[in-house]
Simulated assay, not measured.
Amino acid sequence: MSTNDRTNEGTNDSANDRAASRVAIVTGASRGIGAAIAQRLARDGFTVVINYAGSAREAEALAGQIEQEGGRAITAQADVSDSAAVRRMFDAAETAFGGVDVLVNNAGIMRLATLADSDDALFDSQVAINLKGTFNTLREASRRLRNGGRIINLSSSVVGLYQPTYGIYAATKAGVEAMTHVLTKELRGRNITVNTVAPGPTATALFLDGKPEEVIERLARLAPLERLGQPEDIANAVAFLAGPDGAWINGQTLRANGGVI
């Protein structure tokens, strides 16, 4: 873990108090939806741990941007499919800040093919990151999150759309939703909420890469609001669940998709 602890002069004491008191780990946070979530939580006063798997440059740039805006952020390299790496990430956050209050499970990959055309590597890679990676972080959070914390998992609205070529990806996200419901009950008595946000078509590299323009336009028109979601739309939903107004929401899947399903 590398720490960016550049003090921003002019930040008021109340903002510093909030940043010092609440710590959020956001996985897969160096770009896309994860970066938007990290930025929004930082604006809301959280100290943000920006997890990334490969691109240190993007993660460091995001941490610098957050701190320039008056927030506080550090970066943490960890492949979420590696349980030991996840454990070290939580160790480092606890060492730096004394504990963790919020976990946002955003890291994920999407590789599309029909079931007939899917090879073992396509299946194994998505299960390793999307499902096992979420399990690894949930296990650590279950043991180590401070009482009164929040866990927000990222699923996908494809779980309800059942589109061709999305079978394996949707299956991993359905598993994430199932673990959300179970963990809610297992954390009884600790005042920790566990919820899922399930984006619809969202304008990120993960979604846009490899799709012809006509396909993107068709998908944008699926929602009654007739546009693709933006990363900030999803970040707003996560911020609601992580903040005080989301305290009574527990064990739910919030489908942030503009009405696609």
Rank of each mutant, 00 (worst) to 15 (best):
P224V: 13
T47G: 05
L225Q: 13
A239Y: 03
A84H: 14
A36F: 04
L138R: 11
V48W: 02
T137C: 15
I216H: 04
A78T: 05
I109R: 03
Q65K: 15
A42W: 09
G251R: 13
Q230A: 15
A56G: 02
A85H: 03
S155A: 15
T172K: 11
A107S: 12
N250G: 09
R146G: 07
F97I: 05
L219V: 10
T11E: 10
A203W: 00
A36P: 10
P201F: 14
T7Y: 11
E9S: 10
A242T: 07
A76W: 00
A36L: 08
R143V: 05
G160S: 11
F90E: 06
L103V: 05
V238G: 04
R143W: 00
A93P: 07
D13E: 15
A121C: 00
P244H: 03
V182C: 07
V100H: 05
A73P: 12
L41H: 08
G251V: 06
V260G: 03
R43E: 09
A63T: 00
R88T: 14
N106E: 14
N105H: 04
E213V: 01
L154G: 08
G210V: 09
F207Q: 00
I37H: 01
D17V: 12
T27S: 12
L183P: 00
V86K: 11
V159A: 08
V49M: 11
E67G: 00
V26S: 06
K132V: 11
L208V: 14
K132G: 04
G34Q: 01
A203Q: 06
S83M: 08
Q163Y: 12
Y162G: 14
A15K: 15
G45A: 12
N257H: 08
L206E: 13
L225H: 08
L131S: 07
G200K: 03
A116T: 04
R221W: 00
L62F: 02
V100Y: 00
G259Y: 06
D119G: 15
E140C: 13
S83Y: 07
T114M: 06
R6T: 12
A239H: 00
G28I: 12
A85P: 01
E213Y: 00
A256Y: 10
I261E: 10
N106V: 13
A96G: 04
M110E: 07
F240L: 14
I50G: 02
M179H: 01
Q68R: 15
L112S: 11
Q126G: 10
I151H: 06
R88Q: 15
L225G: 02
F90R: 02
I129T: 15
R255L: 08
